[in-house]
Amino acid sequence: MAHGPDLSLSIARLTFGGEVLYKDFHLNVAGGEVVALIGPSGVGKTTLLRILAGVETGFDGLALVDGHPAPLAPVPGLVFQDARLLPWLSCADNLRAVRPDVSNEVVAQALAATGLVDVQDKWPRQLSGGMQRRLGLARALLVNPRLMLLDEPFVSLDRVVVRELQALVTDLIVQSGATAVLVSHDPQDAARLAHRVVIIAGRPVQIVADLALDALPAQRSRTQIIAYEDRIETAMVESAL
């Protein structure tokens, strides 16, 4: 299976509201790697994801996706923390919005892959919070992404739904071989999904810990997950977060 793209992010300087958010910041992600970016709320994690998605371009530096500047790279599969569904489009049309050329079968397959059945003609508001996140995930899958960018995809959901979605995301990334960057403030997300955990903090933001988690995400036992979670939490505490 072909791996997803290598990522290379280098920010010389990025300011926000007069404050220097990033300065001399570098992050590399190998193709097919799942990296969790962990840090406190408001530190600037989503900003990194927006740069990699090619949405944020107002900074001194360079974001390369397989050697291409991020805005010119193939469309990433971006999953937002608020699902960000278009309320005036049916669920099926929300998917078609990002790939107008796909057939009904492909839309149905993307929905089925995320566990959504008989929702094509429903409006997004008629879905539960968990189902809306699944629909956001199905939309990301529809562009056949080689790069998945996940912005707090499990926040504000109940624990059972979070577990289901974490398993689903892990399966989908393993199946596609995509490179993935997951932004979260929760060590548990990283312990379950990531190959590598990058903890960021401070002003300007710096990488304060870079941890490799050995076991493959899909094969992790409960004990390993708990151990990784402890390890990440300890690193966060030691980094005075």
Binding site: R50, V55, L78, V98
Partner: peptide, 16 residues
């Protein structure tokens, strides 16, 4: 603006 960001991320054309 969140929807504009969605459009940019998924590279929608101006018309779309």
């Amino acid at each position: 603006p969140a929807f504009d960001e969605l459009a940019r991320a998924y590279r929608l054309s101006r018309g779309q």
